[in-house]
Design a protein around this nucleic acid. Structure first.
Length: 668
RNA sequence: GGGCGCGUAGCUCAAACGGAUAGAGCACCGGAUUUCUAAUCCGGUGGUUGCAGGUUCGAUUCCUGCCGCGCCUACCA
């Protein structure tokens, strides 16, 4: 609703400027006044125009206000401060439209969107860093779906890399486990925990004797031969750990549609197809000298053609074209002919956009308890399968450390002449989750003096140093369960457990979403386990309160607000106008913003805005709840009005939380 | 060295496109409702937005320089 009116206002202003000043403005900046009593929208437009028109901002603002004419949905326009134009909406009309849940039509762009997230190495348990990735990614998927887009969710599995090889080495060379024994172990409930410890031991084993690293190289090589025994062991391990990851993420209601694996990119020769095109387009160059002699290299993203070219004339340019200074080279194909991961990533991304001319085989891999199927890549797939890839836009949820690699893939696409694809390729970059020194100490790690002084310490899978995802979820559930047990002893144990789980997930997902992406999260149990203040449970609790009002009143809140909107529009007008109504109107206005916030979150790839919105709604509601007794309100129409306020806020808060993947228990 | 990012209250973080008095949560201190359950609410303490310049009617936001911190910069993935 808020978004819709804002667009209409922007359109009217643009039209006015065209008519009266012959000005074309691309974007009309519209913000919100610091207080609701000043209006719903503010335009700082006159300050900008003052320069262009060489007149005082206030004068221009006066002119705009006088000449804008009536705009549907708006009551009036006023000049305020040094030249702001504040717009006031017809509150009752907005409230009626919101209560009856009118959804003004707007265009949804065509084409499918592919979101890639999680992409955890399938060699050990998922940790809190992976949780941030998956929660950001899953929330972004939900945002896109809320906006009406069709989305495929992919989780890329690097099942032939060093990390899997290391665990294979652990089993075959340190533990000397047989294939049958590994198979047995892999059926244990938390096989990924076993691998977590083993992986750390392998790293130590390499450190003990650098000779041991040769075993890694051999193993890595052996994994690539699909027919061999080592490859079979690697597959056994990676598939078992992958299943564990799917289970862990499913606890948070995070699901995937397709799991493309590196093994298939290898065995279906995706790279060969990509390599040919890259050579042909001149994106890759064969280096004949220097440290990268014998490699196929590409210009690293973010590096520019050397400064000599700037000053020099056209003659120097052609020589420049075929050369990249050594420091700016990214090796794509090694001198021994093997391709690095960036190369495979380029091929994979050509596939995503339908530009490779090859496809995966597909096998049904995992059925979620809700019946949703998750598919996996295969060299020989099933006949009937959904169509993946060939999409219009992609988002890759990958941490900031990989931004250079991501940009290199984008540059490769551009170099191949697929500028359109490059434009629709978004690296959804976010910062890592680290541990506070206190948290690290709690986990039993001895810290150097240097470490103690840091604000955070990076986790290390190699050292087995970190907080496992399932452990954190377990701790959250235990902690929430204790609270629920003491608050609701009359409920059955399984019911209390269900509630505690909802609260735990709410706390965890909110925690991971409330920080902006570029902020490193310094993880601390105390803050992550908090259920008070700016947390998921705070927002859930607001909904519980709203629900309980309706339960006591014996009214179903869903149909209630739609009905009341039609019958009570005059009451809305009466209770929403005037000074005294500003506080409640602020609540309505915030509730009206959900779609606007969703759009903003998508446009900026920043789910934190959504978290902020949920918190703000809950906070305003709690204040309102405290100030206005509703069921005891003697004036019947006012009571209906207050009830509809609760119903609308409840509905919008539930929606907002749902986009964040948070559900609300019946009681708390 | 080069690239990317960060520096805001005691702590953890907000403030999209430059805008009206820089806001929350935690912590600390003091209060509130025999009610629609207090996982709540209200009040208080707390700021030279790293430093120095510049652009602008207006800078936490843009530009330059400096200081401090993190990540990336492998024929690893």
């Amino acid at each position: 609703m808020y978004r819709y009116l804002q667009r209409r206002l922007a359109g009217a202003v643009r039209e006015f400027l065209r008519r009266n000043y012959s000005l074309e403005l691309e974007t009309v900046v519209i913000e919100q006044p610091p207080k609701v009593e000043l209006g719903e929208y503010a335009l700082p437009l006159a300050f900008d125009l003052a320069k262009k028109l060489r007149r005082a901002p206030r004068k221009i603002a006066d002119e705009v206000v006088a000449g804008l004419g009536p705009v549907e949905g708006f009551e009036k326009f006023e000049v305020a401060g040094a030249g702001y134009i504040n717009a006031r909406v017809d509150r009752a009309a907005v409230a009626v439209a919101l209560a009856s849940d009118e959804k003004p039509k707007h265009d949804v762009p065509d084409g499918k969107i592919l979101v890639e997230h999680s992409s955890i190495n399938p060699n050990k348990a998922a940790h809190i860093g992976h949780l941030r990735n998956a929660i950001l990614g899953d929330t972004f998927v939900r945002l896109l779906e809320y906006a009406g887009r069709e989305v495929d969710v992919q989780n890329y599995i690097d099942n032939t890399g060093v990390q899997v090889a290391d665990v294979v080495v652990g089993f075959t060379h340190i533990e000397k486990t047989s294939g049958a024994e590994i198979e047995q172990l892999s059926r244990q409930p938390r096989f990924d925990y076993y691998c977590w410890d083993l992986y750390a031991r392998v790293s130590q084993w390499y450190e003990q004797d650098k000779q041991n690293l040769q075993v890694r190289a051999q193993t890595l090589h052996a994994i690539e031969d699909a027919a061999g025994e080592t490859a079979a062991i690697a597959d056994l391990i990676s598939v078992a750990v992958l299943r564990r990851h799917l289970e862990t993420m499913d606890r948070l209601e995070i699901e995937y549609d397709f799991l493309p694996r590196e093994s298939e990119i290898l065995h279906l020769h995706f790279w060969d197809a990509a390599f040919a095109k890259l050579k042909e387009a001149g994106v890759l160059l064969f280096e004949t000298q220097g440290k990268n002699k014998g490699c196929w290299v590409m210009r690293r993203a973010g590096t520019s053609k050397s400064e000599i070219a700037e000053g020099a004339e056209a003659g120097a340019e052609s020589a420049e074209k075929d050369e990249i200074s050594e420091d700016d080279q990214k090796v794509i194909v090694r001198s021994n002919g093997t391709v690095g991961y960036v190369g495979k990533d380029i091929a994979y991304h050509m596939w995503k956009f339908g530009l490779l001319g090859r496809d995966f085989g597909y096998r049904n891999f995992y059925r979620y308890p809700n019946g949703h199927d998750c598919w996996i890549s295969a060299t020989e797939g099933e006949k009937n399968h959904p169509h993946f890839g060939d999409v219009a836009e992609i988002y890759n949820v990958i941490d900031a450390r990989q931004s250079e690699a991501q940009n290199t893939v984008i540059e490769a696409l551009r170099g191949l002449g697929h500028g359109e694809a490059a434009e629709h390729y978004t690296h959804f970059s976010y910062e890592m989750v680290a541990l506070t020194p206190r948290c690290a100490a709690e986990l039993g790690y001895t810290l150097s003096e240097e470490d103690k002084a840091r604000s955070y310490i990076e986790v290390s899978g190699r050292r087995g140093f970190g907080v496992k995802a399932d452990d954190l979820i377990d701790a959250l559930i235990t902690s929430a369960k204790k609270e629920v047990d003491s608050r609701h002893p009359q409920l059955g144990d399984s019911e209390r457990r269900t509630i505690a789980t909802q609260i735990a997930i709410g706390a965890l997902r909110y925690f991971m979403l409330k920080y902006t992406k570029q902020s490193v999260i310094a993880f601390d149990f105390k803050e992550a386990l908090s259920f008070e203040g700016e947390t998921g449970p705070y927002a859930q609790y607001a909904v519980v309160r709203a629900t309980s009002i309706f339960r006591k009143a014996g009214i179903d809140p869903e149909p209630f607000c739609k009905d009341v909107a039609g019958n009570l529009s005059s009451a809305f007008a009466q209770h929403l106008t005037g000074e005294a109504a500003n506080e409640i109107w602020g609540l309505w206005l915030t509730a009206a913003k959900t779609s606007y916030i969703v759009d903003q979150s998508i446009a900026t790839t920043e789910p934190a805005y959504l978290a902020k919105h949920a918190f703000q709604l809950a906070q305003f509601f709690n204040t309102f709840y405290h100030r206005h007794p509703i069921l005891s309100e003697p004036d019947e129409t006012r009571k209906q009005f207050l009830l509809s306020t609760v119903a609308v806020v409840r509905r919008e808060l539930i929606r907002t939380l749902a986009v964040m993947g948070i559900t609300v228990p019946p009681v708390m």
